[in-house]
Design a protein around this nucleic acid. Sequence first.
DNA 1: AACTATACGGAACGCTGCTCCGTTTAGCAA
DNA 2: TTGCTAAACGGAGCAGCGTTCCGTATAGTT
Lengths: 199, 199
Amino acid sequence: MSVANADPARTERPKRADARRNEQSLLDAAAAVFVKSGVDAPVREIADRAGVGMGTIYRHFPTRADLVVAVYEHQIDECVRVGTDLLTRGTPLASLATWADLIVDFLVTKHGLAEALQNDVVRFEVLHRAIIDRLVPVCAQLLAAGTTAGEVRSAISPYGLMRGIGNLCVGSDSDPRYDARALVQTLIAGLAPVTLTEP
Amino acid sequence: MSVANADPARTERPKRADARRNEQSLLDAAAAVFVKSGVDAPVREIADRAGVGMGTIYRHFPTRADLVVAVYEHQIDECVRVGTDLLTRGTPLASLATWADLIVDFLVTKHGLAEALQNDVVRFEVLHRAIIDRLVPVCAQLLAAGTTAGEVRSAISPYGLMRGIGNLCVGSDSDPRYDARALVQTLIAGLAPVTLTEP
DNA sequence: AACTATACGGAACGCTGCTCCGTTTAGCAA
DNA sequence: TTGCTAAACGGAGCAGCGTTCCGTATAGTT
């Protein structure tokens, strides 16, 4: 192995212009198709809409999860940012509730995103890592603040809570009788220490 | 139309012997395959194991949901029975917690059953009706008892709670870090009226 | 033994995800 | 400008799936 440039990651040369263009086309097309047909839309549909071939889509985004992550990266960032912000405001449990509401909004407006997150832990590992792993630390901080303040008993791990919220969002579109937000709020209420049922 | 025997449902003549035999073979095969490969196992795999053709499986069970329902019918009955029993014992919230635990057990031990319940509301409509619709009334009774006793604020509908429990069970196998039971118990704890955080 | 409604089996079709490789082209250097 | 090559492209092709359809076999009856 050569001594200079031992780290290939340092050496990434810039992509070709057409490659960059196609990547952007794919992101735009995917965003549109996800809205119309959900994140499980056929790969061909996305490729067609972007005006590229099958090979191109797989070269830029080896798995569907990579594409989903790329499309929603900004919104994930936003969730992290708001969560960190909330740490400095209000009471911990209230902050956690507000933050959870934000996550629910994010998940239920993307058709099938929650499903994709939970279904194939293997196939969607990248998506899992991107969303769960980014948000779990924030969740952990909010939970820790609550525990310190005595507002939260630590029965649930940050990871568990994060996935619980995600799971409760599954199928929340397409069924008006199902209210994911209410359930998540109830779940968070259940984090509070033993209830004193007193008049 | 004839006057006698106007109702065709009354007139169902008995199935042929080979048909009954095949139906049983399919149920046995499906039960085995569901354990091994989950409820999403390929139809061919079930047909092969039962030693029948593709046509036969579709004739007896037009949709996958029909097959799943048939396989787990007894256990659904059991859940209904235990739930009704619990109404006459202990405090309402405790009964609800115990019952929810039973449901969780049922769902997490069947690979992918919870997923199937939530995924295609259309495709699995029969499964949905069979499980959700059977259990929702029981859930409603338990919730109502809790409300009457003042142990439960009525923020969540029976249907919503039922689906929430189901959703929390999604993906609970194959991830030791995820504890569906703990989350469901927390959710139920959250049903209690406003918490008094007093020393 | 003959007959027929009932049931069977599996080839075939369409739709998916994904791979592979011959072709095209962007960027550069002479 | 021209020529060169690594980079990128495109889509035919394969495999796996659910589902249908119809020619064949048979249980039960007469």
